[in-house]
Amino acid sequence: MSATLARHKARERRRAVTLWLLAVSVTVFFFFPVYWMFSSAFKTDEVSSTFPPVFTFAPSMDNFVHLFLEAEAGKALWNSFFIVTIATLLAMIAGTMAAYALARFDIKGKNAMAIEILSVRMLPPIVSVIPLFMIARWLGIFDTPWLLIAVYTLSGLPFVVWIMRVFIQDIPQSVEEAAMIDGCGRIEAFWRVTLPLLLPGLAATMVIVFMFAWNEFLLASLLTSSDAKTLPVIAANAIKPKAIAFGLACAAGVIMSMPVIVLVLMMQKYLVQGLTLGAVKG
């Protein structure tokens, strides 16, 4: 009796160890390139062009210094920050208003709305880039932050509407109605009761919208020429016709990725619901 139990336990343990090792190797596969990017960012070009590659080295800040002094990364960082922040805020405000209307009032055509939002999501951005390019030249806003702000607001909007609608629907209507009966107008009820309850959802949505705009490259590269360049555009310049500036590329990658990684990992709890337009709860 106890012998079989012991055998059973041993088998269980072997199984757990195997699975654990499997999980570790999966994690290594997904994490190694990230590690490599971070470590290469602190290598001098000499160190990173040695073969075989080195895993231990004296960290150097050279790449970051170069990036900001020569590659205009400071300006691009500011552009990225300014454009993406404004666009995210605009999309959040307009989108949450629309989401509230869709969640709380009886409006027809919800399926049509679903399709429309999906189609904005699936448009290859390259399609609207030509007219935007022409219109922007005509309006004289080509290569200014405003053009990208408009574009990023648009691409964030469907996300916000869709996700926030689900978050708002998750709040029982009776809570808001109770507030209206207790003495609030509709707006005050939203402000005092609905908004505080929405805060986590708003924060998660904001992080996702921020992420997509912050990471966007194609439109940024085509709709700017010098003044309004964002970080990804600068980073792509690390590829020279004949060679790659290893260190610069990795340093730019680190600077671009850090804000998103930190923000998203903070909001992990609501991430799944946000990424799936509210269709799957995390």
Partner: peptide, 16 residues
């Protein structure tokens, strides 16, 4: 840790 790749800017992903 596994989540991180989807958060890295695609341009940076390409570069690395």
């Amino acid at each position: 840790l596994i989540l991180i790749p989807m958060l890295v800017t695609p341009i940076a992903v390409g570069l690395i």
